[in-house]
Design a protein around this nucleic acid. Structure first.
Lengths: 226, 226
DNA sequence: ACCTGAACACCGTTCAAGT
DNA sequence: ACCTGAACACCGTTCAAGT
């Protein structure tokens, strides 16, 4: 055995190295920037080598999504009120897709069924803890999941639509201006809320939606149910 | 002028013919089936000819989405209660993406900002009619939109994931079995609702979510607000 | 067992050339 | 003005050949 026999070759390929390189590449070049050729070049190898460790591009994207989401859902809130635990889980996903917009596309596109299952379980378990009866449980948890995935899809889409340098306020400013320019008679609502779009905070709005659904869930099963 | 001078050449290319051929192709071969080569072949021309009428594939998909959604939102409900009008608009989108799953991907991916704006306006206007105060209006309408887009994204993803022949009950059966097979201690929620997944109706569940959010909206602004 | 890189079968898109 | 179709610049993926 040579003197270096025990040292791990840091440049040896492995599934983990490929996945983390893919995440880095997705983060700084976007969804379109990840190609097997570019990824192989980054790992100083040929594209064919990657196929020994991952089956195809879809599996690679799913693995990258799983890795990011595992970190996002790491905080399992046991000592919280169910409402708070739901907010924690939802915000965990939100923050993950804010940091890695491409995760939003993968998640809402069901690229990783196991990741979606994990999110659904986290949300559903707390809805259960909320005391929602079995008959309403599935619908309530599904509403939360669909909402979260809807936000995820839009974040990914927004990141894809603009050129990398564009700042969020600039985007909101442009869209707000578009709404202001619409015919008030044909678009009374958009015209009214154009100002709020410009000033709103994405994270705060996301949480407001979660709270709205939570209010609906408790109201339908509480004293004020219609 | 020849005898046929007034007759429109039915084989002449036009934006409308290209878009409707694209819709037909998307419907029966899925998102991956639409290529400029195949579309050109269907219209008995070369791929380059299409570029005279549409700028690129993205514009074509946006135009196809707009065309389908315009039909879906055609019924403008003026003589309804706001709640009913919201359900009508939401169900219009739902039915459109059920009939054309690829529309779900385009819509949730913001491929056509104008289409999303139209849906947002429809929903928001009725939330306004519900008597929601200006301060809560934007959040309330956004919650509805995000929920609708989340469902849209998942429908498209489901259609993409399975081979064309698979029937919906078969999919639900498979996913339900997967949930049943999970460790009950690790996945108490999924284990509990596995049975309901198998029996649930997609459209009914979609509407239940809409109603949940509507309940939340009215509760937050009504006598039972916390 | 793992890596290499040329090659295959596609894409979207362009553009000189036609009518 | 509109259409043609070969060509360009890419992809994901495969696979004989190496080590």
């Amino acid at each position: 055995m040579s003197r270096w026999g025990m040292a791990a070759r840091t440049d040896a390929l492995s599934r983990e190295r490929i996945v983390s390189a893919a995440i880095a590449m997705l983060d700084d070049t976007g969804e379109t920037g990840l190609t097997f050729r570019a990824l192989a070049a980054r790992l100083t190898t040929g594209p064919g080598a990657l196929y020994w460790h991952v089956a195809n591009k879809g599996e690679l994207l799913a693995a990258a999504t799983d890795a990011v989401l595992a970190g996002a859902l790491a905080a399992d809130a046991t000592e919280q009120t169910p409402q708070h635990a739901i907010r924690t889980a939802a915000v965990g996903v939100f923050d993950a897709i804010t940091a890695h917009p491409w995760v939003g596309a993968q998640l809402s596109g069901l690229a990783s069924p196991s990741a979606v299952r994990e999110v659904f379980e986290r949300l559903g378990r707390q809805v259960q803890a909320l005391g929602v009866p079995p008959s309403a449980l599935f619908h309530a948890a599904s509403a939360l999941l669909n909402y979260v995935l809807g936000v995820a899809a839009q974040h990914a889409a927004n990141a894809r639509a603009v050129e990398p340098g564009t700042t969020r306020p600039a985007i909101l400013e442009a869209e707000s201006a578009a709404w202001t320019g619409l015919d008030p008679a044909a678009y009374p609502f958009l015209h009214t809320v154009a100002g709020e779009l410009r000033e709103h905070d994405d994270r705060e709005q996301f949480l407001a939606g979660i709270d709205l659904i939570l209010t609906g869930i408790t109201a339908q099963n509480g004293p004020c149910a219609s």
